[in-house]
Computed example of a mutant assay.
Amino acid sequence: MLNAPIDPMLDQLLDAALPHVAFDGWSPATFDAAIKDAGVNPAHAKTLCPRGAADLAIAFHRRGDAAMVEAIKAADMKDMRFRDKVAHAIRLRIGAVDDKEAVRRGTALFSLPHMAPDGAKLIWGTADAIWNALGDTSRDVNWYTKRLTLSGVYSSVVLFWLGDDSLDMQATDAFIDRRIDDVMRFEKFKAQVKDNAMLKPFSATLARMTAGVKAPPSVPDVDLPGRWREPNP
């Protein structure tokens, strides 16, 4: 999680790995080179990163999330509409990336079948970090739908951004606005369905079905897909 302590040696390994990622990807060769360049004991490195460079790729993504959260806290967004706050948060997350090629290589890594669950967890984690930083207080089914929707938006933005060669990423900025507009239109449609007299029996049934859905306990790694742990008593 973002607020978990990070071993300084993991940061050291990650910094040493990044220059190699552009050439070798998040690979064993990159991991071995990072160990050598950082002067880290190989046994300690394997303890920090049991899966080698894959764990460094995860650390790289979470480093970006942490930088984004700090940028959101420092930003003056009090006069923004909420949709603009979300769009701005996505821009801050993209802006937190100081190595685009590392993201490109990470996208390729997390598209592999055995790494796809980790990729989904990271995207969900980014969406969760954005909503939390923006003050989301939902604890019902909306907790899930907000993060699910934003995960889809953010992942599509990253793919678009990776191929964007426009001046100052203007095309990505426009794409973010379009995607947020799509979400807002969907939210408006949901509200219209809820208020439609003919559909109220269906809406009421759906509300009863989801009434028991609650956000997971706020303990490390629980609020991400694929993980569930009961909080300590």
Rank of each mutant, 00 (worst) to 15 (best):
I176T: 03
H44M: 15
S111Q: 11
A127P: 09
D32K: 14
H114E: 09
A16R: 07
V40A: 15
S151Q: 00
E230I: 07
Q170Y: 00
A22K: 15
E70K: 15
P117M: 12
V158G: 03
L14M: 10
R93C: 06
A129W: 08
L56P: 04
K146D: 02
A53M: 08
D173R: 12
I94N: 03
R104F: 11
I130V: 15
K200I: 04
T126K: 01
A87N: 02
R185G: 01
T172I: 06
R62Y: 04
V213H: 01
A96M: 10
P220W: 12
T145S: 15
R62Q: 11
S111F: 13
V103C: 13
R178L: 12
A87P: 01
A43C: 00
D32T: 11
A57P: 05
T205D: 10
C49R: 05
A54K: 10
A116T: 09
T149Q: 07
G52F: 09
F175S: 03
F82S: 03
P217N: 11
W143H: 07
D173P: 00
D24V: 02
W131V: 02
D177R: 06
I58Q: 12
A207I: 00
I180Y: 07
R229V: 15
A191F: 01
G52K: 03
V103P: 06
S203C: 14
A71Y: 04
A174H: 07
I35F: 14
K73A: 15
P5I: 04
P42S: 09
K85S: 05
D221Q: 13
V141S: 12
N3T: 12
W228I: 13
M198Y: 13
D128G: 00
G163P: 00
A74P: 01
A59C: 04
A116K: 14
K194T: 05
D128C: 01
A116P: 00
K100L: 14
S218A: 15
G106S: 07
W26L: 04
R147P: 02
W161T: 02
G52W: 05
M80T: 00
I130Y: 12
R62N: 07
M9W: 03
S203M: 14
A215F: 12
D181I: 00
I35A: 13
P117A: 09
L162G: 04
V158W: 07
M198P: 00
A34C: 05
R81N: 09
G25S: 07
A191V: 01
K194H: 07
A71F: 08
H61E: 10
S151P: 00
V158A: 10
D55W: 03
V222C: 14
L159N: 03
K194A: 15
G64L: 10
A17M: 08
F175A: 08
